[in-house]
Design a protein around this nucleic acid. Structure first.
Lengths: 219, 219
DNA sequence: GACGAAGCGGACAGCCTGATCCGCTTCGCC
DNA sequence: GGCGAAGCGGATCAGGCTGTCCGCTTCGTC
């Protein structure tokens, strides 16, 4: 593992050629990640960016470094959406629209989806989550106060919804890229009050963290 | 790719030692698949069964052959559950309980889950699906007739529910193996009538087939 | 324009995986 | 018990991925 380097401010200034390569890498990676997601290798990025493997490794020692660099602004965008939602007068609409907007972003970019819903995002984008989580909590509280959402629903329940929808988006991407709207609608409507409570118990926040942090493959 | 062989009746009789090995392979594979799913390799199965790799390849040229041999009876069981559901007087309970039972089976066995919801299952277990699909269709029809389920829901909408829930089950398996009940409950409640229709359009059956048949990784 | 440092590229070593192949063993039968 | 066929095992090959390393190039500065 090569040790350091990534952003602009951290390690002095990059030489002009290095800067140029960094940009080419990011551009190539953005393209590849959007369609192929996590599975992209350093070698592929290097080839697509027309750059040596070493260069990619030097600049972004781990894939997560690359993803963070790519997705910083999208995360920013999600944060902004969340805060904007607080202004919406009807809590249910606010909550619903927020989820639709977030899932829409995720649907368009496989890399973003995997980053936000996977271990890398958790580990590296703590800042963004700390910004978003309390807002969603507040929206939920308001909606429940008005009886728009079943009272036993928790924020961890909400947080699982994008995970569920992503599974469908993932599979359907080539066939029907729009289904996510429908299944998201289904899941969201499941939040509305019915006579009876949901079965089982919700995840504790710490449990949710572990769920998200579990790498996909290994047993 | 070695060409033939798998079941008992197809290729004459197996020699006694071959039969014994086949059983050891299946036993080992059952154990491995339950916890690790698709990711299990022929080599691992061979090692666990204490048998040469060649033997596994000879008997089960593709992983799907192995899975079909393993999961035949579970599929049978699902078929039976479906048919039993037809007898239940209340259509909504019938539908809900059927899904709970199926997802419960899937939650207990990663291999079964991936087989039923993935390309292999589609390709090889056509018989079972042909048995199950019409029953679910009938349950849905009845439930809608009584206004227990929103009228715009289709069987393909229903079929996506296990896909969504499986994503959560998969991730949560070590942390909270029971969450599936809760998220399944959420999704099922989304089927109940609300004032407004679901957004978007449902998958056509042929589209659903393609969605399910898309292999997981490749771009 | 010259020199030291920063950066580059890509060959390569190490590791893992999937799949094949063929000399040897075991079985079933006469 | 002997013989042909069926079956076995695992060494082995091809191919892919990660990550490193070092001789060469390019940059920036004086």
């Amino acid at each position: 593992m090569i040790s350091p380097v990534t952003p602009e401010g951290t390690t002095g200034r990059l030489r002009r050629d290095a800067e140029r390569n960094r940009d080419r890498i990011l551009a190539a990676a953005r393209r590849l990640f959007a369609e192929t997601g996590q599975a992209v290798t350093h070698n592929e990025v290097a080839r697509a960016a027309d750059v040596g493997v070493g260069t990619v490794y030097r600049r972004f020692p781990e894939r997560a470094d690359l993803m963070l660099a790519l997705f910083e602004d999208q995360l920013e965008q999600v944060g902004a959406l969340a805060e904007a939602a607080l202004a919406e007068p009807d809590p249910w609409s606010a909550l619903r629209d927020f989820f639709v907007q977030v899932v829409d972003l995720q649907a368009a970019d496989r890399g973003l989806r995997e980053f936000m819903l996977g271990p890398d995002g958790r580990a590296r984008a703590g800042e963004a989550t700390e910004r978003i989580a309390p807002v969603v909590g507040e929206l939920l509280r308001r909606a429940q106060e008005r009886g728009q959402v079943r009272p036993e629903v928790t924020t961890t329940d909400l947080a699982l919804i994008p995970v569920m929808v992503a599974a469908v988006t993932e599979r359907a991407r080539d066939v029907a890229p729009g289904v996510w709207r429908r299944v998201l609608g289904l899941a969201l409507d499941g939040l509305r009050p019915t006579g009876e409570p949901l079965p089982g118990r919700p995840l504790a926040p710490a449990e949710f963290d572990r769920v998200i942090s579990t790498p996909r493959r290994p047993a």
